[in-house]
Amino acid sequence: MAYLFQQILNALQLGSIYALIALGYTMVYGIMTMINFAHGDIFMVGAFLCFVAATVLGLSFIPALLFSMLGCALLGVVIERLAYKPLREAPRVSAVITALGVGLMLEHLTLVFSPYPRHVPALWSSASWHVGGVTLSSLQVLIIVLSVLLMVFLDWLVRRTMLGLAIRAISWDRTVAAIMGVPVDAVISLTFAIGASLGGAAGFLYALAYPVIDPYMGVIVGWKAFIAAVVGGIGNIRGAMLGGFILGAVEILVAAFLPSTYRDLIAFALLFILLICKPYGILGQPRPQKV
């Protein structure tokens, strides 16, 4: 029982990181119907910024977190302006392929500067408590709490503010939104910035939780988070969070009760089946098509 509880805690930790990344995918998809395949690598950059902040700059926890988030936000906006904006009217896959290319560039640029894996020093002197056989580390609690705070904030932002309204207007119809006076370019850039900064935060937290980082770490984690976004129903903010936690739970629980090599196999098989049964994700809905 304690073992199960421990695993649930681990699942929450991993799930909240997946959820943070999934949010970036979903926000960009929601506003542009575009899969930003570079997002996993933005997450990776976030982890490396954490490393830079901790070693080169010698920042403490909060400034380092902000450094990661702002750095990634900036990166997201630059990518959007240079690589995606010119392709808004092009066929949709062109932007997707461009995103794949940008992601590869990020990976290998990082590889140029960091040819071998790095060890991230602890930015947080973690205490741990033992409660009835369950080990609860303060880092774990921090990751979960911080992620949940960010998600609640985002949910509020999208549901309750003018920015959220503008995002929804653009995702409904970009041209009409522009006519109605929504500053489309600025809102799209801001969306990228928010999504990327969440990715950066995820990278930061990931680097603290699993401190060995390398330039390819964003590939597999990114794809998985993307799948999580789709499972929840891509374009749907709450769906992305749900998908992230589901994926985290499945992975951890499978690894807990079966040989760990089965983790990916079972996680993906479950997702595959889920997608076949609910092709638009758990909370997603197909856009009605009239003939």
């Binding site: 690589a83 392709l87 092009a90 062109s94 932007a95 392929i97 461009t98 794949l100 290319g101 940008v102 992601g103 590869l104 560039m105 290998h108």
Partner: peptide, 8 residues
Amino acid sequence: PLLLVLLM
């Protein structure tokens, strides 16, 4: 990948 992006 840079060439790919430019091409796109």
